[in-house]
Design a protein around this nucleic acid. Sequence first.
DNA 1: TATGAATGAGTATTCATTCAT
DNA 2: CATGAATGAATACTCATTCAT
Lengths: 206, 206, 206, 206
Amino acid sequence: MGRPSNQFQRKKQIVDALLAVMATTGYENASINAIAKHAGLASGLVHYHFKNKQAILVELVNLLDDTAQSRYQDLKLNASDPKQKLSAFIDSALALGQGSNQHAVAAWVMIGAESIRQEEVREIYQTVVKKNLSELQLLIRNYSKENDKKLTKKTIENIATIVYGSIEGSYQLASTASEIIPKNYAAKALKNMLFALLDAGTDVII
Amino acid sequence: MGRPSNQFQRKKQIVDALLAVMATTGYENASINAIAKHAGLASGLVHYHFKNKQAILVELVNLLDDTAQSRYQDLKLNASDPKQKLSAFIDSALALGQGSNQHAVAAWVMIGAESIRQEEVREIYQTVVKKNLSELQLLIRNYSKENDKKLTKKTIENIATIVYGSIEGSYQLASTASEIIPKNYAAKALKNMLFALLDAGTDVII
Amino acid sequence: MGRPSNQFQRKKQIVDALLAVMATTGYENASINAIAKHAGLASGLVHYHFKNKQAILVELVNLLDDTAQSRYQDLKLNASDPKQKLSAFIDSALALGQGSNQHAVAAWVMIGAESIRQEEVREIYQTVVKKNLSELQLLIRNYSKENDKKLTKKTIENIATIVYGSIEGSYQLASTASEIIPKNYAAKALKNMLFALLDAGTDVII
Amino acid sequence: MGRPSNQFQRKKQIVDALLAVMATTGYENASINAIAKHAGLASGLVHYHFKNKQAILVELVNLLDDTAQSRYQDLKLNASDPKQKLSAFIDSALALGQGSNQHAVAAWVMIGAESIRQEEVREIYQTVVKKNLSELQLLIRNYSKENDKKLTKKTIENIATIVYGSIEGSYQLASTASEIIPKNYAAKALKNMLFALLDAGTDVII
DNA sequence: TATGAATGAGTATTCATTCAT
DNA sequence: CATGAATGAATACTCATTCAT
C-alpha cells in the first residue's frame, strides 16, 4: 500500500522555510538550496512538491492571508458592535512585533514588492487586498449606519483604502525602521484617526 | 589637456536607467547588462563609474529623496499657515500617478523591501524616514499650537508616524493594486483623516 | 536510498585537473572553465564540490604534500643508517623529471609564488616547509651524532634550510630552464655538497 | 621644438610601479590601473610607453638583472683572489632582506613562476640564468685551478647549477616563509657548503 | 518519496587595450 | 605627451531545475 502520504506536512515545511529565509534575504536571494537546508530537506525534494520556486511563493501568500484571516475572526468573536468590529480588524492587522510574526511582516513587504513584477503573485496579492478592502468597506458602512451618518460609496471606498494603505505602510516601517519609530503606535493611532474622521461632521468627510 | 570629464552626466544616466529598469523588474533582476543597455552604454562603463551595483542603488535613493524634497519645497512656498504647510507635505508626497513618477513610486517600494536586507541601503532609507518624520512632527506641532491644542511629544510622534506610514502604504497600493483602488484618493483622504483627528477634542487624541 | 555519493572521486578529478592546467598556465589563468573542461565536467559542478577556486588550490597543496611524503616513506624503508636516510630524503625530493611529476614540480613553483599573495595558501605552504625543515634537521642531527660531530642547534637549522632551499630552487630551474641545465644533476650534487660539509672538520661548519 | 622627452624617466616610473605592485599581488593581479595609480600616472599613459603589459614585465626582468649585476660588480672590485670572487657572487646574490630589495626578491619569484607560462618572459629569464651559470662556472673553475684541483666540465656545471638553484630557492623561502626560517643564514651556509665540497678530495666530487 | 549530483545559463565584476580630447 | 572615458571579452560564482539512483 506504500507509505502514507505526507505531502501536506512537507509542503508546509517548505513554505515555512521560504518565509523564514526570504524575511531576511528577499525572494530572489532565497535559493532553493537555502530553503531546503532551512527545512532540513534535500533540495531535490522541494521541486518534487512544488513545480517551481514561484509556486512556493504563491503558497506562502495564501498561508499569510489565512493566518491573518483567522486572527481577525478570533478577535471579531468578542466584538459586539460595529465599532468593536472595526477595531478588531485594525487590531488583528497591526498587532505587530509580538511573537514570530516579524518574519511574516517582513515577508509580506517583500511579497508586495515582488508582486510588482510577478504577474501571478500580483494576482493573488490583489485578491487579498480586494478582500480586505471589501471587508473594511463593510465595517465602515455598518459603523456609519449605526451612527446615522450617510456616507457615499465613493467616500467609504476612499476611507477604506487609506486605512488599508496605512496598515501596509506600517508593515513597511516596522520592517525597515523599527529602531526609529515609536513602539506599538500603529493600531491605536490609526483607530483614533479613523474614528475622529468617522465621528466628525459629514461635511468634513468627502 | 586630456579628455573632459563627464562623470556627472554619465552617473545620472546610469542611475536613471536603474530607476527605469528596477521599477518593472525589481532590484535583483535589474542586471547591470539591462541597466547599461537601457542607458545606451557598454556594461563595463557602469562599473567604471560605480564601484558596484549597490552604489548605484544608494545614489538612486539619494536622487529620489532630493526630488521629493524639492517638490515639497516648491509647494511649501505657496503655503502661508501651518495647515497649508501640513497639506503641502502630504500633497507633495501623494501627488501620485501624474507625470513620470510612477516609476519612482514603484522603485521606492522596491527600495523599501531591499532595505530590509541591505544594511547600507537601510541606513540611507532610515535617514530619509527620519528626516520626513521630523518634518512632519514639526508641522503637526505648529498646527496644534496655532489651534491652542497642547499635544504631548509622544502623541505628535505617533501621529507623524502613522501619517508617514500611510504615505508609504499608498505607494505600495498604487504600485501593486492600482486597478482596484480609487483614483487620487490618497492625499485628500489622508488630509481629512489627519485634520479630523487634530481638530477633535484633545480627549480623543492619545 | 537516494543517489550514492561520489564526492571523493569528483574532488580528486577536479584537483587533478587544476594540477594539469595550472602547470602550464599558472593559477590565475587556470580558469574554472578550463579546469572543468579538462576534467570532463560541467563548470557548475566544480563549485558544487568546492566553495571557491582557492579551495581547490588548498586541496592540491595537500595532495602534493601527501604524494611527496609517501615517496619519502617508501625510500626510507630501505635506508638502514642515518646517511642513507638523509639521502633518501633528498632523493625522494629531487627525483625530478621522471614520471608525470613534471607537472607537479611546475605546479609547486606556481604554488610557491601564489603563497606570497594568498594568506591561506601561504599558511599551508609554510606548514609543509616547516615539516620538511624539521625532518631534515632530525636527519642531519642523527647523521652528525653518529659521526661524533657536535653541531649546534643553530648550525643544524642553517644547514637544513639551505638544503631545503636548494630543493625548492631545483624545482624552479627544472621548470623554467630545463633546456639549459644539466640532466639529473640535482640530487647527486646536493648530496655531495651536503656530505662534504658534514664530513669536514667542525671548524669549517658554522 | 616641443617639450623635452621624458620617455626614459616615465618608463622607469612604470617599471618600478609594476615591481611594487606585483610583489604583493602577483603579475596577473597587477592591473594596469593599479600600476598607473602607484606610479601617479594616468592609465592610458602606460600603454603609450609600453605596447602591452608583458612589455613592462620584460623591462622589469632586465632592470632586476641589471641591478643584481651592478651589485656583483661592486663587490667584485674588492675581491683579489678566486675565493673572494666566488664569495662576492654569492654575497651579492644573497644579501637578502636588507634595503628595499624584499620587493625585488618577491617579484623575482613571481617572474620565475610567470616564465613557466610566458614564452617571451621565459626567454629573458633563461638568458639571465645562463649568464649567471656561466659566471659561476668560470668562478668555480678559477678557484679549483688555483687549488690544483682538476674538475671536469660536467662537474663544474653540476656544482654551478646546484649553487644557483640554492640562490633561487633562498629567494623563494625568504618570500614565503621568512617567519619560519633563520635570519641571514643563506650566504654563509651556502658558501660553507660549497667550499667544503671544493676543498674536499677530488674523489668526493663527481 | 527522497537524495544529492549534475547542468548550463545568467550575474556582477575586472581588466587590457583603444581612443577622443 | 597626457588624460581618463569607453569597450567588450573573460572570469568566478550562483542557482533553478532536472535526473540518476
